[in-house]
Simulated scan of single mutants.
Amino acid sequence: MSTLRVTAEKLTVHTHPNADALELAQVGLYRAVVAKGQYQDGDWAVYIPEQSVLPAALIDELGLTGKLAGSGHDRVKAIRLRGELSQGIVCRPAALAGTDLAAAHAEGRDFAPDLGIVKWVPPIPVHMSGDVVAAADLLHWVDIENIKRYPGIFAPGEQVVATEKIHGTACLYTLTPDGEFVSSKGFGAKGLALARSDRNLYWRAVLAHRVPEAAAKLAAIFGAERVGIFGEVFGQGVQDLAYGAKAGAELPGYAVFDVSFSDASGAVRWVDAEELPGVLAGLSVRLPVVPQLYAGPYDEAALVALAEGRETVSGTAAHLREGLVVRPRRERRSDITGSRAIGKLVSDAYLTRKGGTEYE
Rank of each mutant, 00 (worst) to 15 (best):
residue 2 S to L: 02
residue 4 L to W: 12
residue 7 T to I: 05
residue 10 K to Q: 14
residue 16 H to K: 03
residue 19 A to L: 07
residue 23 E to V: 08
residue 26 Q to T: 10
residue 26 Q to I: 02
residue 31 R to V: 10
residue 35 A to C: 06
residue 37 G to L: 08
residue 40 Q to C: 10
residue 41 D to K: 09
residue 47 Y to A: 13
residue 48 I to E: 07
residue 51 Q to Y: 13
residue 57 A to V: 06
residue 73 H to E: 13
residue 74 D to P: 00
residue 76 V to L: 04
residue 78 A to R: 05
residue 79 I to N: 15
residue 82 R to M: 06
residue 95 A to R: 15
residue 109 R to T: 14
residue 111 F to D: 00
residue 125 P to C: 13
residue 127 H to Y: 04
residue 127 H to T: 02
residue 128 M to A: 09
residue 129 S to G: 15
residue 130 G to T: 08
residue 131 D to N: 13
residue 132 V to Y: 03
residue 138 L to P: 00
residue 140 H to M: 10
residue 147 I to Y: 01
residue 150 Y to C: 04
residue 152 G to R: 14
residue 153 I to A: 08
residue 153 I to N: 00
residue 153 I to Y: 01
residue 158 E to W: 01
residue 162 A to P: 11
residue 163 T to M: 06
residue 163 T to V: 10
residue 164 E to W: 01
residue 167 H to F: 08
residue 169 T to L: 03
residue 169 T to A: 14
residue 171 C to P: 01
residue 175 L to V: 07
residue 175 L to G: 04
residue 178 D to Y: 14
residue 182 V to Y: 09
residue 183 S to Q: 04
residue 184 S to Y: 04
residue 197 S to V: 04
residue 199 R to H: 13
residue 211 V to W: 02
residue 214 A to V: 03
residue 216 A to Y: 02
residue 217 K to V: 00
residue 222 F to H: 02
residue 230 F to L: 12
residue 241 L to I: 14
residue 241 L to G: 01
residue 243 Y to I: 12
residue 247 A to Y: 01
residue 248 G to Y: 11
residue 251 L to H: 11
residue 252 P to Y: 07
residue 259 V to E: 01
residue 260 S to D: 11
residue 260 S to M: 13
residue 264 A to C: 08
residue 265 S to R: 13
residue 275 E to P: 04
residue 283 L to W: 00
residue 284 S to A: 13
residue 301 A to C: 04
residue 304 V to E: 06
residue 309 G to D: 02
residue 319 H to I: 10
residue 326 V to L: 03
residue 335 D to V: 08
residue 342 I to L: 11
residue 343 G to P: 00
residue 350 Y to F: 15
residue 359 Y to W: 14
